Computed example of a mutant assay.
Amino acid sequence: MSIITIILNIFLPPLAVFMKHGLGKAFFINVILTLIAWLPGVIHAFIVND
């Protein structure tokens, strides 16, 4: 995982997931989690971008 991916995972989780997986199920799940609360979106981004 590059430093840019780590920074995006923290500050813009949906963008990080989009860059790795595109407009798929993982992206929309991450958007929902990020809108509900920021921390679940960050955790999901780190898990998905393993």
Rank of each mutant, 00 (worst) to 15 (best):
G41K: 03
I6K: 14
K25V: 12
I3C: 04
T34Q: 08
P40W: 11
K25I: 09
P40K: 12
N49W: 00
I43T: 07
L33N: 07
N9A: 12
P13Q: 07
W38T: 07
M1E: 09
I7K: 11
F46D: 01
P40V: 09
P40H: 11
F46H: 08
A37F: 14
L39I: 15
V17M: 06
K20N: 13
P40L: 13
F28G: 09
L35H: 04
I7V: 15
I10K: 07
L23M: 13
M1T: 13
G41P: 06
G24A: 04
L35C: 14
P13N: 04
S2Y: 04
P14I: 07
M19C: 07
I43A: 11
P13Y: 01
P40F: 04
A26S: 13
P14A: 10
G22E: 05
L35V: 13
I3L: 10
K20P: 00
V42L: 12
F18W: 14
A26R: 15
L23G: 11
M19H: 02
A26I: 02
I32D: 01
F27V: 03
D50N: 14
H21G: 08
A26W: 10
N9L: 00
P13A: 09
T34V: 04
L12M: 13
F18P: 08
I43C: 06
N49M: 03
I36Q: 03
F18S: 10
I29Y: 01
V42F: 10
T34E: 04
I29W: 06
I6L: 13
A16W: 00
I10A: 12
G24W: 00
F46L: 10
L8S: 12
F27N: 10
G22L: 01
I10V: 14
L33G: 05
P13I: 06
N9C: 15
A26K: 15
I3W: 00
S2I: 04
